[in-house]
Every structure is written in structure tokens, then in C-alpha cells.
Computed example of a mutant assay.
Amino acid sequence: MMWNLTFISEEDFTSHVKATIEKYGEKLESFDLKRFNKNIIDPIKLIFDKTVYQSSWEEIVSNEIFRQRDKSNNNDIGYFHQRIFQYIKNCHVPPNGEEGGWDVIYENPDGISIPDAGIVHTVYVEMKNKHNTMNSASAGKTFIKMQNQLLNDDDCACFLVEAIAQRSQNIKWETTVDKKKVGHKLIRRVSLDKFYALVTGQEDAFYQMCMILPSVIEKVVKELEGTIVPHDTVIDELRAMASEQNIESEDLAIAMAVYMLGFGSYKGFTKK
């Protein structure tokens, strides 16, 4: 594989992908029936989903396991988006909670051009995975934090960088604080592609990273295969439970096994 990224080395990028995968941690552990039902699943929902979506039991169980794993994976992807900048020239990723709690600090002695606002030498970044993850209170708190930074440093800008923004943009951020609409030309809302372009000097840097990412993830997963690939046993355990039911239809027997996960003590489901 030819390495075409000029702003990060193959070694650093591979190390970062590996660190991100390892952050998945216990979510990569295999699911057995006990873990599957740890928070007690909704059997009625599973029955509806299976029938309405015309899925097999294997598919619907696999989907539910994926959903449970996926609930806590966003933080790990946030780690990927943030910590990659530690490898990019002029960028600094402070330890959690330190240096004002900023996610990324970008400093360039040659100056950083801010649209309609001139030149600064430092950009302080608050990073979000998705454009709609902040409620009004959180947005107001973040804006005030950025205002305070500008008061303390008249040679900086503050960016709200969104990995999944509504569009590619680098615009003045306007929000509501204490029921008043506020904005400042040095407080900006920036999509991740525009931030990559700014710090690397390459307009399509984010696109280029995305193009190389799948093959690097695949390579790292193969290297870690013995330690991270889960071997889920839920469907096998449900089939074993189903075989103990005195029900001729295998589909209904598995449905009964699923019912027992949530309704095992309910009248009619007990064997008493």
C-alpha cells in the first residue's frame, strides 16, 4: 500500500487506529446470554423487529448485540477524531481537563487566517462528534468559555469543530445565551474537513484520510485478530433453551426462549 498522506506518517496513523480500536475495550468481549440480557431486553420489541423486518433470529440477535456495543462507541470515535491531531504539525492535544479543557490547540507562528477577522496565531478547539449533540444550555456554556478565552488572549480564535456537521463550513458561530442571540467573528463553527484543511494546508486532507482509513483498520484488526474478535454465543444458547421447550415450531420455540429473558417470572411463562 502506497502512503499518500503528507500530514501524518503511516506509523503514527496506524498507531492511532490501533489505539482507537483498543479503546473499545470490554465492548469487544464476547456476548453470552447473561451479558446479552444484563439490562433485560424487551422481548416484544425483538419479536416485532424480527417479523416486520423479515429477519432471521440470527440477524435480529446480532443486531441487538451490535446496538448494545454501539451505545458506548461514540466516545471512542471522539477519541479518534481528537487525538489524531497530536501527530499533526503545530497541533497540540492537552491531557483531559488541562490547559483550559480544550480538545485541540493549534498554534502557527506564521499566522492563521480567519475569514472576515484577520490573522491570529492560536486557535482553541472544542470538538463535537455531531452538530446536534449540544443542547442550548451546553451551547451557551461553550460559547461563554470561548468568550472568556478571547478576553484573556487577543491573538486567538475559538472553534467549535464538528465531525459530522450539517455542511462543509467555517462560519461565525451564532447561538443563544441567556435568551439573547450572540456571535463573534473569532468564535466560529467549523466542519471537520475545513479544520483539517486549515491545519494541514491541504484542502482535501480529510477526504484523503478517509480514503486510507478502511485499509488501515482492516490491517490492524487482522494483526489483533486473536485478541479482539468476539465470539458471541447468544443465538446458540437461545437455541439450546428452545430445544427444551415442548413446542413443535422451532421459530416459536426460540420466541419463547426470548420471552423467558424478560418475562421468565410472569404468570404463564413459569413452568410451575
Rank of each mutant, 00 (worst) to 15 (best):
M1Q: 15
W3K: 13
N4I: 14
T6F: 11
I8D: 01
S9E: 13
S9W: 12
E10Y: 11
T14L: 10
V17P: 04
T20Y: 02
T20G: 04
T20A: 09
Y24W: 00
E26A: 15
S30M: 14
F31C: 10
F31W: 14
D32A: 01
D32F: 15
L33D: 07
R35T: 11
R35N: 07
N39Q: 02
D42H: 02
L46H: 05
F48K: 00
T51D: 13
T51K: 12
S56M: 11
E58Q: 10
E58S: 13
I60H: 10
I60P: 08
V61I: 15
N63S: 06
E64M: 13
F66D: 13
F66V: 05
R69I: 09
D70T: 01
D70Y: 09
K71W: 05
D76F: 14
G78F: 14
G78E: 15
H81S: 03
F85G: 04
Q86L: 00
Q86E: 11
Y87T: 03
I88R: 00
I88D: 06
H92Q: 14
H92P: 03
P94I: 06
N96L: 09
G97K: 05
G97P: 07
G100Q: 11
I105C: 04
P109A: 01
S113K: 10
Y124T: 04
V125T: 11
M127K: 13
K130V: 15
H131K: 08
N132W: 14
T133P: 09
M134V: 09
N135C: 09
S136A: 10
A137W: 10
A139C: 00
G140S: 13
Q147M: 04
N152D: 04
D153S: 07
C156I: 01
A157Y: 04
A157E: 01
Q166W: 12
W173M: 03
W173F: 02
E174S: 05
K179N: 05
K179A: 11
K180L: 08
K181M: 12
K181A: 15
R188P: 00
R189P: 02
F195L: 05
T200M: 02
Q202N: 10
F206R: 00
Q208N: 13
M211K: 08
L213I: 08
L213D: 00
L213A: 11
S215G: 06
K219N: 03
K219C: 04
K222I: 01
L224V: 13
E225N: 15
V229S: 13
T233K: 00
V234R: 08
D236S: 12
R239N: 10
A240G: 06
M241R: 14
M241K: 01
A242Y: 01
A242I: 11
Q245M: 08
I247E: 13
E250W: 12
D251P: 05
I254R: 10
I254A: 13
A257W: 02
V258A: 05
V258T: 08
Y259A: 03
G262C: 05
F263G: 03
Y266I: 08
K267G: 02
K272R: 07
K272F: 10
